[in-house]
Design a protein around this nucleic acid. Structure first.
Length: 217
DNA sequence: CTCCCGATAT
DNA sequence: ATATCAGGAG
């Protein structure tokens, strides 16, 4: 068996166990349509989903129902509303710029291709893949966020540090139809067990297939 | 590579 | 006190 086949087999075993562990794994951001997820995804950078939801869910219901609503409210007001998220200045500018682009080029709708999404200011590959997977039903998306990078690295599924290379590495290991699910169960595992500071190796269902012995003590 | 630049857990 | 939170742009 080749080295890549061994890795593939281990990735399949990891996916199997995590699917059992997190049967309801999904996006933790609250949204009712692609526009809401687009905005919340920008705000979620270096900030917890719980905080984004706390701020934005009431605003979507009462105030920001469309790009026009955010544009009408203006940059200053929007920035004040999202102040408790991180990087509020850049995020507010990105959101307002995107609202203008959606209005001008997309008839107010969110585009559904990686190329178009990543052209939008504040939307990189991670955010684009979140939208494609959660709003447009795309299954062959590997979503590389900070959790994904940490957990797949510890599991020895990639040697790379660069998000785009990690994405490519895992696309070779996980079948296309399973990539969306894999992204979410890895995310949940990173959040609940394989945390950045004190990974709970004692209760980890992947303990025996994880090569990161230094973490286990 | 740096900057962005708030809230929370440890 | 500090590392980290579902990153992206210049």
């Amino acid at each position: 068996m080749s080295e890549n086949d061994k890795l593939k087999k281990r990735a399949a075993e990891i996916l199997k166990r995590l699917e059992k562990e997190y049967p309801a794994a999904k996006c933790h951001l609250e949204f009712r349509n692609p526009f809401e997820l687009l905005v919340s995804t920008i705000l979620s950078a270096q900030c917890t989903d719980a905080r984004v939801n706390m701020i934005m869910t009431p605003l979507y219901e009462n105030k920001y129902k469309s790009p026009d609503d955010i544009l009408a409210d203006g940059l200053e007001n929007f920035r004040e509303n999202i102040k408790s998220c991180n990087f509020f200045n850049n995020k507010a500018k990105s959101v307002l710029a995107i609202c203008n682009i959606l209005k001008k080029d997309y008839n107010g709708k969110v585009p559904d291709s990686l190329e178009e999404l990543t052209k939008l200011p504040g939307i990189g590959r991670k955010s684009a893949n979140v939208i494609l997977g959660n709003c447009f039903g795309k299954k062959d998306v590997i979503i590389v966020d900070t959790h994904f990078k940490r957990v797949t690295g510890r599991l020895g599924l990639t040697d790379n540090d660069e998000p785009e290379k990690i994405e490519a590495d895992l696309k070779k290991l996980i079948p296309p139809a399973k990539q969306y699910v894999f992204s979410h169960v890895i995310g949940d595992h990173g959040r609940y067990v394989c945390g950045a500071r004190k990974p709970k190796c004692g209760v980890c269902v992947l303990n025996d297939v994880c090569p990161s012995d230094s973490l286990k003590k």
